[in-house]
């Protein structure tokens, strides 16, 4: 089913019951401030908080293990690459240089390690926040949430529509590809590389044509039901804000303020323990 695209799990916890809008605001504000700050004390606080929320939303490891593994691999790869390309970045940033192991170009400094620790924490903190949003938000609420925070309803609706049509297009692609093979394009392993390539490109014309057809039909169907008539529209799946929603938004603002305070204290984005 296409609603699984977002990984929505149809569970019922207080996190699930929050409106999509408040979760979206929390997600955006908190990840932005966590991205800006390089103060591990602050990021660590946010991490604790988001792990708490994560536990509360009762997400199971099996739901997320693929994504999490993927993210961890990329994060580690990224940290290694940062070290490979500029092993001296930490020292330059913090203005001091405490050598731990001297290896010439790849000399390891305390500053570099500290910098990469902050970086790693930042990656880590965004994982639970974004997963909470994706898994506990009903996809039906997605477009209305976007609309609530100021994105035009046409844009947000077309976004969620295109997500809805991805499985359809995948299906079409498969069918057309099979039909082309029946015509004589050998795409299976028995064919030569060139003819396989040529066969694959032949799928695109009918795929584009059938998708354009679909778009035309759907936009006609939408117009026939007055989509685009008014400047605003209401949303069936919209729910009233509860105290918890206001709480969530206040909390995210509070986190932003804390983050800014930490930056004031540090005199910039970076907390420097070396001076």
């Amino acid at each position: 089913m296409n609603s699984n695209l977002f990984g929505y799990d149809h569970n019922d916890t207080w996190v699930h019951r929050l409106t999509g809008t408040s979760k979206l605001i929390f997600f955006i504000l908190v990840s932005i401030i966590a991205m800006i700050s390089y103060d591990y004390r602050f990021i660590f606080l946010v991490l604790l908080l988001s792990i708490f929320a994560f536990k509360q939303s009762q997400i199971k490891w099996s739901q997320i293990k693929f994504v999490v593994k993927l993210i961890v691999v990329f994060a580690v790869l990224n940290l290694v690459m940062v070290f490979v390309f500029s092993p001296n970045h930490g020292a330059a940033l913090y203005g001091t240089r405490h050598v731990l192991i001297n290896l010439g170009y790849f000399t390891i400094t305390k500053e570099q390690l500290f910098y990469e620790l902050n970086l790693g924490l930042k990656y880590l903190v965004t994982v639970p926040i974004s997963l909470i949003f994706l898994i506990t938000t009903n996809p039906s609420e997605f477009s209305s949430s976007l609309n609530k925070i100021g994105v035009s309803y046409r844009l947000s609706y077309s976004l969620s529509l295109s997500l809805r049509y991805i499985p359809d297009v995948q299906n079409d692609f498969k069918e057309i590809s099979l039909a082309q093979q029946a015509r004589g394009y050998e795409i299976s392993k028995k064919g030569k590389l060139f003819s396989r390539l040529k066969g694959t490109t032949q799928i695109l014309i009918p795929l584009i044509l059938s998708s354009l057809d679909k778009i035309q039909t759907i936009s006609q169907a939408m117009e026939l039901r007055r989509f685009g008539k008014n400047k605003h529209r209401t949303w069936y799946m919209n729910r009233k804000f509860t105290k918890k929603d206001y709480g969530t938004i206040l909390l995210s603002l509070f986190i932003v303020v804390i983050g800014i305070l930490f930056m004031k204290m540090d005199g910039g984005r970076f907390y420097n323990p070396f001076v």
């Binding site: 939408m222 007055r226 989509f227 685009g228 008539k229 069936y236």
Partner: peptide, 19 residues
């Protein structure tokens, strides 16, 4: 090809949402 809602209920309500 003319479904616009992610669920049956939303699809039924689509016209009313626009109004």
């Amino acid at each position: 090809d003319q479904f616009v809602g992610l669920t049956v209920a939303e699809d039924i309500a689509f016209g009313m949402e626009n109004d």
